[in-house]
Design a protein around this nucleic acid. Structure first.
Lengths: 147, 147
DNA sequence: CAGTATCCAGCTAGATACTG
DNA sequence: CAGTATCTAGCTGGATACTG
């Protein structure tokens, strides 16, 4: 009988790897931007969503109010919008400004860090627009081949 | 009383938006690459993981066998490794080759499409390595400010 | 060697209702 | 207007055991 079982060795490897994964900045970033509404909030605050349906996008970052974001991201629940904005604020990607009017006025805008991340994410957008058709086609082919 | 209730209007907006979201290539791509093991598989097959702990990375894409991948991605379960590889194969990002030896030899390698996506993802990696420290610091500041 | 099959915990996100 | 609070369904990923 070995001094460490296979299960123990796997548990140790897992613990080490979990630590590595948790510390890995790329993984951290991926989980950051892959939230369901994160990319949409970036697009809206980054000026890549039309102000109104049908309008052109300016491509210029601009502040937006909570209710305007809620309208632009049609379908988002209040809970998820607030949660998403809060976590982005916590990470310093979005700035939240409260004006003490009655009722209060709250605006959100991208920080410099947020703008920089938004620019990086547009590389993904470009790849997606260029190649996702191929991916979808590959899926269809695979599915018919395998029944 | 209105002819459509607020709940009905929201449901309609949600249905439309869900369709938009499902069709959005960027969202599709994000969910594709944000799987826990996807980036690691890309790094391994793309030559950005050391062949053995301590080795330098070649940066050259190369085929790897299933067991070699399992060793490189320490901590991955067989289920998740197989599932990840299958889905990448389905999307045409990874090619799976079976040699009918006894027992069988199976190798995985990036396709051209996979290499192209891997290159795009390195933009994220660069941003992460440059800026994630700031993000972590921002988090800490936010947490102390809010208690 | 390279998988399948089954079961289960934890997390993400949505629905709904309420408030300073 | 801009939230908070609570409950819950569904999905992702992990543990474990078995196989051509």
């Amino acid at each position: 009988m070995a001094t460490t079982t296979a299960a123990q060795q796997r548990a140790r490897a897992k613990a080490e790897y979990d630590a590595f994964l948790a510390a890995c900045p790329s993984r951290e970033l991926l989980s950051r931007i892959s939230g369901k509404w994160v990319a949409l909030v970036f697009a809206a605050l980054g000026g890549n969503a039309p102000r109104r349906p049908g309008d052109d996008c300016t491509g210029e970052p601009r502040p937006m109010r909570y209710s305007e974001l809620a309208r632009t991201l049609a379908g988002v629940s209040q809970k998820m919008l607030t949660q998403t904005l809060r976590s982005l604020e916590r990470d310093g990607l979005v700035r939240r400004t409260v004006e003490p009017t009655v009722p209060v006025t709250v605006t959100y805008e991208l920080t410099d860090l947020g703008v920089s991340l938004h620019r990086t994410m547009r590389g993904l957008k470009t790849w997606a627009e260029t190649h996702m058709d191929d991916v979808i086609a590959n899926r269809a082919t695979y599915d018919t081949r395998t029944g």
